[in-house]
Write a protein that binds this DNA or RNA. Structure first.
Lengths: 231, 231
DNA sequence: TTTAAATGGTGTTAAAATAACAATAAGTCT
DNA sequence: AGACTTATTGTTATTTTAACACCATTTAAA
């Protein structure tokens, strides 16, 4: 094999850390591998990138095949390319994470076939390949991102309570002692990015909380004026 | 060609945005391409990744071949993989940036052969491939990084003046109106990361400034205690 | 040797942001 | 009606930030 040919004895894949927020906890969607290598192990959903496919497109495809969802928040994080990371050859992988609303998730043929399951972030065991390392990187990126831009709302239903929003931040940032409720509300509300709805929570056995909506248009206006989201 | 084979008709490269700081300005080291495609155009130094080479190793190799430097600050930024980004085939590239002290740079055989030159960041023209886009990403990353960690010192000689440090930050962050001298010095010195040397600047036609050194050990101690660098 | 030219070095204060803290309100359930 | 559970709200001390101007020290030129 010539040297030039050997450069082309390689492939690249995308792997996707799909985050969701449910039951007050941050979760990720894992699949159980049905074939070697790592048969039976939990792994991040991923696939080889098609020859005529852009990287972001491949990541979005993997996500859609598994969840049925399109137009989801998706961000490239890092590329993992250790020589021995894949037992069957030189395969580097471009890692992405995506943020979905768990309520939108429906079990697709692909997710059924691959027995996809939500796992609490704190209860993820030993994953296939270098996927634990990939998860760490994505989690670290999400932690930074969620404080600098309003991506947190991607994980919540369109209408949410301030307490739910606070729990979301706590579950991602994991501060040693929870956020102060009064300070959190003051800060969030002072940004004027939330619309207070007339509706309230229903079906709870206590005082129902007001529901809010994130106003993306306003956010974009403010950004154009120099506003920087920061929590 | 089978479908599996076609996945392996692809290659990956690394490209490196090499930053330097000289004459009060942020610069990058570009090479002039000697062969098609984009013959004669300025480009980021890069190369295909060898089959048995890790990605970080490849990036460090490209840097060393061009500059003779090892053990340099190097960070992966983003992978660019648009289907048509390389005219000769499917080649995705993993972009890195590195921070070097311009005074350490010596012209190597490789840099001579490729006519490498420092370019002011504000005077970079139209580059080969998607390298302008890559540069933008790396610059953006550097801007963030330099405020969150003390990587700025990687661009300065071991002994430097506070004014040089301020100019470094100004040339990277490009604030609309320069940083306030008194506030900048107060902030930097209050971190207790700089050692004031007995030496002063020499050979200047005005009051010479005191020289300082960055104390990396102290920084690491402080980080272990929870300190977060922030400018 | 005096003076001009150039950059180095320093402190105060008002305003804003942050952090710490606890009592009442509004629902459901029994 | 009373118990239970979570929602909602404001004040204050402390810290951080931002704005601002003058004297000091050296070299070079007159």
């Amino acid at each position: 094999m010539s040297e030039v040919e050997s450069f082309f004895k390689s492939a690249f894949s995308v792997d996707n850390v799909i985050f969701g927020f449910d039951g007050g906890e941050l979760k990720i969607l894992l699949i159980q591998r049905g074939a070697a290598p790592f048969k039976g192990k939990w792994a991040l959903p991923g696939d080889l990138v098609y020859p005529n496919e852009d990287l972001d497109t491949a990541a979005a495809r993997v996500l859609e095949q598994l969840t049925g969802l399109r137009n989801v928040y998706l961000e490239q994080v890092k590329t993992f390319g250790a020589v021995d990371r894949h037992p069957l050859g030189r395969v580097i992988t471009i890692a992405y994470y995506s943020l979905i609303k768990v309520t939108d998730y429906t079990v697709t043929a692909a997710s059924f076939a691959q027995s996809a399951k939500w796992h609490s972030i704190s209860q993820v065991g030993d994953l296939a390949f270098d996927h634990n390392e990939i998860l760490e990187s994505c989690l670290k990126r999400l932690k930074r991102k969620v404080r600098m831009t309003p991506v947190g709302f991607e994980l919540l239903p369109p209408k949410f309570t301030l307490t739910a929003l606070q729990h979301l931040y706590e579950s991602i940032l994991r501060p040693t002692k929870g956020l102060d409720k009064r300070n959190f509300r003051k800060k969030i509300l002072s940004m004027n990015l939330l619309v207070e709805l007339k509706e309230s929570q229903a079906g709870v056995a206590h005082r129902p909380a007001k529901l809010y909506q994130f106003d993306r248009e306003k956010y974009e206006e403010f950004v154009a004026e120099g506003f920087v989201f920061d929590i």
